[in-house]
């Protein structure tokens, strides 16, 4: 899968002048696991969201497998899965199985088959015992696991995760982190968990709306840490 940023940037008009959210950025993301780190408000989410068209660049463009998310949204969303920080916003059906079924609606038209596929997905992630349980009764870690299962159910070729472990405890951070880093799919991981970031194949540091470092993940983490005053 190739993800290419061709001078993609975002400037927005605000009541007190225009504001650069992400300066024009040129990148090619081809590595298996890519970490994006940086301070709050630096522009990481904006960069990640441009890959699946949730944010459209105001300048330049992004190409995913040759498709422009701003124009061929459907083709891009079929290839790119997106995992958010708060699973509560992602889980939209009452029960676990039904939420997975919602993901599968697009690809599996037969209702009976869809239910079976959903149960298989839950089985794979150790959630099958909760198939008919309310999503509200799950723990935070189980909710995020379910949200991720819903994303993976449709077999995307890239997974973008925007701070997927920020709300989780240590054990669940490890569990979700290991799951993400172990995926065969390409992964773009925005995170404040520097241990997780360092385990990736490439690291990108964003500061003040710009990519300020791009290289091996461990070196990127060092660069970010060094940039924060003690």
């Amino acid at each position: 899968m190739s993800i290419v940023f061709e001078g993609a940037g975002l400037t927005v008009d605000t009541p007190d002048g225009s504001r650069v959210v992400l300066a024009p950025t040129t990148l090619e993301l081809a590595e298996h696991r890519i970490a994006v780190v940086g301070a709050n408000g630096s522009g990481k989410s904006t960069l990640a969201r441009m890959i699946n068209g949730l944010v459209a660049p105001s300048a330049g463009r992004v190409l995913v497998d040759g498709f422009d998310p701003a124009r061929d949204g459907r083709e891009v969303r079929r290839r790119v899965g997106f995992c958010f920080t708060d699973p509560a916003a992602q889980l939209v059906m009452p029960t676990c199985a039904e939420d997975i079924e919602l993901s599968l609606r697009r690809t599996v038209k037969d209702a009976h088959l869809r239910r079976q596929r959903a149960l298989q997905v839950l089985e794979r992630h150790g959630l099958v015992d909760h198939a008919d349980a309310s999503v509200h009764t799950l723990s935070g870690g189980q909710k995020q696991l379910l949200a991720l299962a819903g994303v993976l159910a449709v077999e995307p070729s890239v997974v973008i995760a925007d701070e997927p472990t920020t709300l989780l405890d240590l054990a669940n951070t490890r569990r979700i982190g290991d799951l993400l880093l172990g995926l065969e799919q390409q992964l773009v991981l925005v995170t404040h968990d520097l241990d997780l970031a360092a385990r990736c194949d490439r690291g990108i540091v964003v500061a003040d709306a710009r990519v300020v470092y791009d290289g091996p993940a461990a070196a990127a983490v060092d660069h970010y840490v060094a940039s924060v005053p003690a």
Binding site: L54, R77, F82, Q90, S103
Partner: peptide, 9 residues
């Protein structure tokens, strides 16, 4: 989240 999941596509 719905848009990202391609729901409504």
């Amino acid at each position: 989240a719905l848009a990202a999941r391609g729901i409504g596509d």
